[in-house]
Nucleic acid binder design. Structure first.
Length: 285
DNA sequence: TCTAACCTGATC
DNA sequence: GATCAGGTTAGA
């Protein structure tokens, strides 16, 4: 479900209600959702204190006392919330931690793709997901973006969805970024012109920034921790707007499938000037 | 690099 | 009943 902006907002909203609290007990957990490392057991979390909460890409990282780390990936439908203990639990609640102030930290996830992991701090640096993760969009300058795009064979959309190229973008924001930059999702990632790469780099960070400022995008599941919906979906120019008029040119927003993902674009504003992908697979140089 | 698979629920 | 969904990844 959530991409970088939504995960960032979850982190910001959760901090005041979890930091400096201790975990008293694990009240409930599903072992296929809450995993442990080689040297951790679930109950190790009991008695620990939440020291910090940060985000890397779409991953939430809670640092605990006793050298423990709790990572949470919400994937498509995961949600985290803190509630009073008597608050009715959402369906598909897979983990409940009782906190020292009497409240509870709960993780619910309809589709059960989401994962929580309890690790030793030392093992976090060997976590395969974190090891592969590319830079944050805010730290990706034109130089570095160019270097990363140049060797790529496939589509621009596929490249931007690849978390090792840049961390945190997902289907919504890639479509929105490409529309703003006037780039067709099927352009060959390795063959952008210099001015297009520059535009892509700046568009990327401004779209992400604006989405955070607007409280993220609420399409169906995502809510801010306080329960209110985001507002960035109102700013979407292409995502979820197939058949509607493009704000830029009065043309019609179309939907196609790129690397298996529904992809929204305006064919006028995002021209596909270089022929079909199949003709672009020729080796570079 | 791409597809299918992992799950459940909403919508067609 | 079939298809689709904001993500990731094993396997081709």
């Amino acid at each position: 479900m959530p991409e970088l902006p939504e995960v960032e907002l979850v982190a910001r909203e959760l901090r005041p209600s979890v930091l400096r609290r201790h975990v008293l007990r694990v009240l409930e957990s599903r072992e296929d959702v809450f995993l442990t490392g080689a040297s951790t057991r679930l109950n190790d979390v009991e008695g620990c204190r939440f020291e910090s909460l940060r985000r890397r890409g779409k991953l939430l990282i809670f640092e605990l006392s006793d050298d423990l780390v709790l990572t949470v990936h919400l994937r498509m439908t995961g949600r985290l919330e803190t509630t009073e203990p008597d608050h009715p639990r959402q369906p598909h609640t897979h983990l409940i931690l009782e906190l020292s102030d009497g409240r509870q930290l709960r993780f619910a996830d309809t589709r059960r793709f989401g994962r929580m992991q309890l690790l030793r701090r030392d093992d976090l640096s060997n976590d395969p997901f974190l090891l592969r993760l590319g830079p944050e969009p805010s730290e990706l300058d034109v130089e570095s973006l160019s270097q990363r795009l140049r060797p790529r064979i496939g589509s621009l959309k596929g490249a931007l969805l690849d978390q090792s190229l840049v961390a945190g973008l997902g289907n919504i924001y890639v479509d929105e970024i490409l529309h703003r930059a006037g780039l067709h999702p099927l352009l060959s990632a390795g063959r952008l012109r210099p001015h297009e790469r520059a535009l892509l780099a700046s568009t990327m960070s401004s779209v992400i920034e604006e989405a955070i400022a607007a409280g993220g995008s609420t399409i169906s599941d995502y809510r801010q921790v306080n329960g209110s919906a985001g507002r960035y979906q109102l700013e979407h120019r292409v995502f979820g707007r197939e058949g509607k008029k493009c704000h830029g040119c009065e043309g019609e927003i179309r939907k196609l499938v790129v690397t298996g993902r529904g992809t929204h674009l305006c064919p006028n504003c995002q021209p596909r000037r270089r022929g079909r992908m199949s003709g672009e697979r020729r080796r570079q140089r």
